[in-house]
Design a protein around this nucleic acid. Structure first.
Lengths: 147, 147
DNA sequence: TTGCTTGCAAATGATTTGCACTGCT
DNA sequence: AGCAGTGCAAATCATTTGCAAGCAA
C-alpha cells in the first residue's frame, strides 16, 4: 500500500510538471488525505491536516484540478467535495449521496451495465452534436442514519 | 398544449396547497417560464419575466422546491439551475452538460437501459444500507459551439 | 536575485434574510 | 384588522484574490 501510494505521488508529480507546477509539501499532504478517504469537503480536508491554511487548501486544490489530479464534485450541500481523479485511482465509480447528511460514498457498477450505458450515452451525445467527455451518475437516497 | 399547461398549473396548485401555500401570480409566472424552457439559471429566469425581483424569484423557487414542484440542479457553473420536477412533467430524463458554456439539455435514454440501471442501482443502494430515492445522470461533454 | 508557494486579511458574488409595504380575506 | 406575498437593502458564507513574507534554484 505504501508502494501504490508512492506510485500515486509520482503520477501526480508528472501531471503537475506538465503544467509547470511544483509538487509541494502542501499538495502532497492534500493528495495523501484524499487518497485515504472518500470525497471530502474542504473543512473535512482541513480537519485531517495540520498547519494548512484554508486559502492554501483552496488554492492547492485549484492547482491539482487544473492538472487533472483532482476532481471537484458538487451536490446540494454547502461545501463542494474533492476527490482524486479517476485517471489516478484507475477505478471508474459513481456516488451514493445521502439527502440527509450529504455524505458521499464511492460505488461501482457491473461492467456490462457501464458498457451498455457508455454506448447509449455516446449515441445521445452525438445526436445533440456534443463531443462526449464522460458521465457522472449520482444515486440519491438516505443513509441508515438519516433514513 | 394550452390544455396541458392548465393541467400543470392545477398540479402545482395542488402541491402548494398541501403545504399551506398559495399559488400566486409570481409563482405561476415562474412555473410558466420553466415549463417553456429547459433548466434555467436564476438570471435566465429573470430575463424571461417582467417585474420580478431577484429575491422574490429565489424565495419563490424555495417554495416551489419545498412543495416538490421544482428541482434545483447544480453543476460547476456559477449559478444553479432550476427545472420542473419530473412528477410534473412525467418524463424521466437526464442532463447533457456542456463543460464550456454550461448549457444543460434534457435527454432521455432507452427504456431498457433505464430498467437495467434502476435494478442495478437498487442493489447497490441496498448493499450500503441506503433507501433509494432516485438517480441523476449527467453526460459531460462539449456542445458544437464550445468543442 | 528571481520566481513560486504560503497565509493572513480583505474582496467577491450567489443566495438568504430583515423589515416595511401592499394586497387579499 | 390580520396574514401572506413582495421587493429593497443588508447580511451571510463558500470561495477567490491582493499582498507581503519565506523559501528554493
Amino acid at each position: 500500500m505504501n508502494g501504490s501510494r508512492e506510485g500515486l505521488h509520482e503520477a501526480v508529480r508528472h501531471l503537475l510538471m506538465r503544467e509547470g507546477n511544483v509538487y509541494t509539501a502542501n499538495l502532497k499532504t492534500m493528495v495523501d488525505v484524499l487518497a485515504g478517504d472518500g470525497p471530502l469537503t474542504l473543512p473535512e480536508l482541513l480537519d485531517r491536516t495540520e498547519e494548512l491554511a484554508q486559502s492554501s487548501a483552496y488554492r492547492g486544490l485549484g492547482v491539482l484540478i487544473e492538472a487533472g489530479a483532482v476532481r471537484r464534485i458538487v451536490h446540494d450541500s454547502d461545501h463542494a467535495r474533492y476527490e482524486l481523479d479517476e485517471q489516478l485511482t484507475g477505478h471508474h465509480h459513481h456516488h451514493l449521496v445521502c439527502a440527509g447528511c450529504g455524505v458521499v460514498i464511492d460505488v461501482e457498477l457491473p461492467t456490462e451495465i457501464e458498457h451498455l450505458l457508455d454506448r447509449s450515452l455516446d449515441a445521445v451525445a452525438q445526436s445533440h452534436g456534443f463531443v462526449l467527455d464522460g458521465h457522472d451518475l449520482d444515486i440519491r437516497g438516505r443513509c441508515c442514519n438519516c433514513a
